[in-house]
Design a protein around this nucleic acid. Structure first.
Lengths: 335, 335
DNA sequence: GTGAAAGCGCTAACAC
DNA sequence: GTGTTAGCGCTTTCAC
């Protein structure tokens, strides 16, 4: 067993042609006579030859790899977005490389970004969902095409987003329309000071001239909602709660339940994202369906257009859709 | 603005040294006088130079990239495992490339595997969680070190696993010990004909000489548990149900609830994985805690040992821990 | 310690 | 159509 992988010259020799001819059948860059093409293909199959991406990249200066930089890979929205990117990329023959940046710490971000840019890349997609994502985008000094996913809009930046502010506003409106005097908001860790979900919530309350209750901050852990639920149970003005995501909403509902409050009879609770478990929860959760995989797909599309030189689009936005289930209802008098 | 990235010769020129000298400070392969080293480092910083991984790989034949092949990236166990791999890899200076193989279709698997092996890789980690993973592992004709995560044990294969069979057996024992005559099992899509969770369940029933109810098959979708819950509600012998994962358990519980049955009063339900939402469910779910991130970490460790040539370990197994919560209890008479 | 020379596996440019 | 030549950005000999 020869441990060295076969190279293009092995193929050329075996097929009785020159190296560039093999390259031509590989890339399809120029026409090759059917006879030689056949010999080459046979040699490739016999040797189980696979071209070296490294060598190709070195000379052609074109890479078929994109990097995805994300603050996390396992939380629902993140994982789905990455999945969407991967599927779209693979369909176009691109490979994807993942870089996780767990904190916004300057050194860590720099190290991660540097290591990533060392690779030969066609472009980069950054999940601008959180501070690490924002930090990574900021330190991405490169001439490569870059696409940011979500986050606040920036001029000149290629960006695919979900219009979370509008959806949050609509959801808050819905709660207000049910007759609640106001809506409390439990915020998930924001990517910056502003965050679409919180912005939309505030916008709706302002427009309705409803009182704006103090913001409640959760962490990414679903259980962080439990304590918040306990606190909310003590507050008679809290008849409707809009949570930054479904997992936190589930934590809040458990906290409420532990204090003897029922959803939606005593308190209405709404989430965000339409997590796969939201419909199975008791009661099924009113939420906002977010097409994260689609976001990833649109992001890759934007990158591809930048690569082609076609497409002058810099921005792709999609409006998430509300899903009304049983966790929200009109308020009843609370003691 | 010069759009070409600086190369090692740009750095050499600027620092007034030869190219190999720059290489030496980069790799630390040989000693360089402090004076020159300083000049080189200054030049690198000024030019914002980053070595090309492609060129390095080409000449040194050593890659710092590993590929992870998985049937999915967003389901809980998969995502956590990948996260564990990524963290361990990054800590050792490795970059990770993700390849998703969605079906076990031969062509799709071949295409994905081929595209992956085109890259210059140090090694490959395969999530042998499902048929696509098994298929990918089978077609991975390469001299590269390969590590499989989970799945049935194979001699000669480097493998890190979670001992799911033992944990499933222990969980089934627990239910039997509570006084249930038997335990029903809802299976998630298995990676082959045998599957650790199902095996452990059957083993426990056999040992206890309890009747073995027919296997109930769920899909990966949590909601596929709902219909199974409905069916189980019609079966008076079903007083305890062990579900292949927590999400399916939640679906089953919803199905049961829709038919008016209470958990655990009428039926005990246990899950598997200790999903972050399992503790928040009502009632909190009895389950098995699986350290997926640890599995990923151990898998990478095995790969690293193979790369070093140190370590002769081929196998790393860990026993998951049971978590008793409120969804399981002693049976009561059912109408 | 340091530089000159060679070459990794491939594609681009050019001649025929 | 096809082969010859050059060279991508690096590391690896091998002199000195």
């Amino acid at each position: 067993m020869n441990s060295r992988n076969p190279t293009i010259s092995d193929v050329a020799e075996r097929a009785g042609v020159s190296v560039p001819t093999v390259s031509r059948v590989l890339t399809g860059a120029a026409r090759v006579s059917p006879a030689k093409r056949e010999q080459v293909e046979a040699a490739i199959a016999e040797l189980n030859y696979r071209p070296s991406a490294a060598a190709r990249v070195l000379v052609s200066r074109k890479s078929q790899t994109i990097a995805v930089i994300a603050g996390n890979t396992s939380r629902y929205g993140y994982a789905e977005t990455i999945r969407g990117i991967e599927i779209a990329a693979r369909a176009e023959g691109y490979t994807v490389m993942i870089t996780v940046v767990e904190s916004a710490d300057e050194d860590e971000v720099d190290r991660a970004v540097s290591a990533t840019l060392t690779q030969a890349l066609a472009g980069v997609i950054v999940l601008k969902f959180d501070p690490p994502g924002v930090a990574a985008l900021g330190r991405l000094s490169t001439d490569l095409p870059v696409v940011a996913l979500s986050g606040t809009r920036e001029t000149g930046l290629r960006q695919a987003v979900l219009d979370e502010a509008s959806a949050a506003e609509e959801l808050t409106d819905h709660l207000l329309g049910l007759g609640h005097e106001t809506v409390h908001h439990v915020r998930i860790p924001p990517s910056r000071r502003v965050d679409g979900r919180t912005t939309g919530w505030r916008r709706a309350l302002r427009r309705a001239k409803a009182p704006i209750p103090p913001l409640l901050d959760a962490t990414w852990l679903p259980r962080s909602g439990v304590g918040i639920g306990h606190a909310l149970a003590e507050d008679p003005s809290a008849t409707a709660v809009f949570c930054g995501n479904d997992e936190i909403a589930m934590g809040v509902m458990r906290g409420l339940a532990e204090k003897g409050l029922r959803v939606p009879e005593d308190v209405s609770v709404a989430g965000f994202d339409d997590h796969p478990l939201a419909e199975l929860w008791s009661p099924p959760l009113t939420t906002v369906e977010q097409d994260f995989a689609g976001l990833g797909r649109r992001g890759f599309q934007l990158l591809l257009e930048a690569l082609d030189g076609t497409g002058v689009r810099l921005y792709s936005s999609e409006r998430p859709r509300l899903v009304f289930r049983e966790s929200t209802a009109a308020p009843k008098a609370r003691s």
